[in-house]
Deep mutational scan, measured.
Amino acid sequence: MTEYKLVVVGAGGVGKSALTIQLIQNHFVDEYDPTIEDSYRKQVVIDGETCLLDILDTAGQEEYSAMRDQYMRTGEGFLCVFAINNTKSFEDIHHYREQIKRVKDSEDVPMVLVGNKCDLPSRTVDTKQAQDLARSYGIPFIETSAKTRQGVDDAFYTLVREIRKHKEKMSKDGKKKKKKSKTKCVIM
């Protein structure tokens, strides 16, 4: 069974824990209790493949930012979460993405942009803004509501699919490099 290491990042209060708990335990946590770091595991079937999701729910508070490099190193894919009623959390996505790329030393890291709290009427981040940002990053965008469960499975499952595509691409690139290195030079 394939294991996928997913990391949920975003500013404090955007609903990272609520999304994760909704996926794992099928219930909505409405009281806000700032996370330092929590880890969850769940076995699911995605596109006919049974897999184990190892999900790291991270601290959004700035005082825990020193811990970010460590979990970013171990993560295979990242859910970059903002709240649709919090423009600052949307603007912060850029910083999370840049930090992930720096730590992973790669421009090509599996990510999904997630606009959470889409059940709320007080939207300050337009869907088109988020779609445009995701398009500019070359990553999928999904709106979710941890409260109603809308888009929750889709967000995590899409990230797994992005990781699969990335692994497939990397193995193809690896095979191309191996083929090239088999060419021999004969000096007579």
Rank of each mutant, 00 (worst) to 15 (best):
L133H: 02
V152P: 04
V125G: 09
I142R: 01
K167H: 11
I187H: 15
T127P: 08
R149Y: 07
D154L: 10
G138D: 12
L133N: 03
K167N: 12
V186R: 04
G151A: 15
R164G: 12
F156P: 00
D132R: 07
A130M: 12
F156Q: 02
S145V: 07
Y157A: 14
T158F: 03
Q131V: 07
V160Q: 03
H166I: 10
D154N: 11
K172S: 08
M188V: 08
R149M: 14
T127N: 10
E162H: 08
A155K: 00
V160R: 05
G151V: 05
S136L: 08
A155L: 09
A130F: 15
R161V: 01
K128N: 12
I139M: 14
I187K: 15
K169G: 07
K176A: 08
L159W: 00
K184W: 00
E168R: 05
R164I: 09
Y157I: 14
D132Q: 08
Q131D: 11
D153I: 14
T158V: 04
M188H: 11
M188Q: 15
E162K: 05
K165V: 04
K169F: 02
T127I: 11
K177C: 11
R135Y: 01
A130E: 07
K169M: 11
D132K: 07
H166K: 06
K180V: 04
D173C: 00
E162I: 02
K184I: 00
H166N: 14
Y157G: 13
A134G: 05
K167I: 04
K184C: 01
K165P: 01
I139K: 05
K167C: 04
T183Q: 13
E162S: 03
F141N: 00
S145G: 04
V186Y: 01
R164S: 12
K128S: 13
K128I: 11
S181E: 15
T158H: 07
H166S: 10
V152G: 07
R164W: 13
D173F: 01
L159A: 08
L133Y: 07
V152N: 10
K165E: 12
K172A: 06
S136R: 09
T144A: 02
Q129G: 06
Q129R: 11
K172I: 10
K177W: 07
T148C: 09
D173T: 08
T127G: 11
K175E: 06
V186L: 08
D132L: 07
S181G: 10
R135A: 15
K167R: 11
K175A: 13
V160T: 06
Q129V: 10
L159I: 13
K165T: 03
H166W: 11
E162Y: 02
G174I: 01
K178D: 14
K180L: 15
D153F: 12
Q131N: 08
M170E: 04
I139L: 02
S136F: 09
R164L: 12
Y137F: 15
K184S: 13
L159R: 00
H166F: 12
K165L: 02
D126A: 10
Y157E: 14
K176C: 12
R135G: 08
G151S: 03
L159N: 00
S145W: 10
